[in-house]
Design a protein around this nucleic acid. Structure first.
Lengths: 115, 115
DNA sequence: CTTCGGTGCAATCCAACGGTTGCACAGAGC
DNA sequence: GCTCTGTGCAACCGTTGGATTGCACCGAAG
């Protein structure tokens, strides 16, 4: 499986998922309160000042972005934060930034040689 | 220097800046074609299928997020991509992801001990 | 001085997004 | 059986955001 993770294809979708304050709060709440069992949308809505449906939408976005995982227990759906995906995304950003910097310094060196 | 960089405060603003395809194209174009002189909004608009004003807005967003730097030459404004900021943001993401993972494994170990 | 190319500002348009409310459905517990 | 709680779907609303057009301004070149 490659296509659904945050480290796949264009990272823009993942960044869009991370570009919302409420979504970050959801992620952090999941990451902190996670007892490997996961939290339901209702529980999250109970702790955050937004409706359960809003939370559900955010969870859907996060799951599509691959930053969250869900498993259905009985009639309820528990969500877990996927820190590894976040890490992968971070490493990817780091690589891109380094590549740009490298190009800059290389050009600078060439310019220096020409002087 | 703390408030303007992409690595300051909440990273949400930086992610919002990175959550747009056109903005990424602008960034990549800057990073590739950069001859240390930088590119103007007009030049960018010439290469990308969007208006100069749209580019200007994107550049403003990117500069606010600290991902781009501008310097005024004559009557024109040249922009440079700041790869280092991107790298810093990436490292930050990496750290958060690792923290979440660490918490998970710690909880898992405790659960194992209880069994 | 006049002209031309690069910017900046403001108004406008439309799609996407976050959030809410309401309802309908499913499953565990009495 | 009935009830109560957790989900899911759909419609709706206000705001944000990407993009356009139009105009005014300023600086370098003729």
């Amino acid at each position: 499986m490659v296509s659904s993770g945050a480290s796949a294809g264009s990272p823009v979708a993942a960044f869009a998922a991370l570009a919302d304050e409420t979504r970050w709060t959801v992620l952090e709440t999941l990451a902190q309160d996670d007892g490997a069992a996961g939290l339901t949308a209702s529980v999250l809505a109970d702790r955050l000042p937004v409706t359960r449906q809003a939370i559900a939408k955010h969870l859907a976005v996060l799951e599509t972005a691959g930053l969250v995982e869900s498993r259905t227990v009985g009639r309820e759906r528990r969500y877990r934060a996927l820190g590894a995906e976040l890490t992968a995304l971070g490493r990817r950003l780091e690589r891109i930034g380094n590549a740009w910097e490298a190009r800059l310094t290389r050009i600078a060196r060439i310019a220096e040689t020409l002087t």
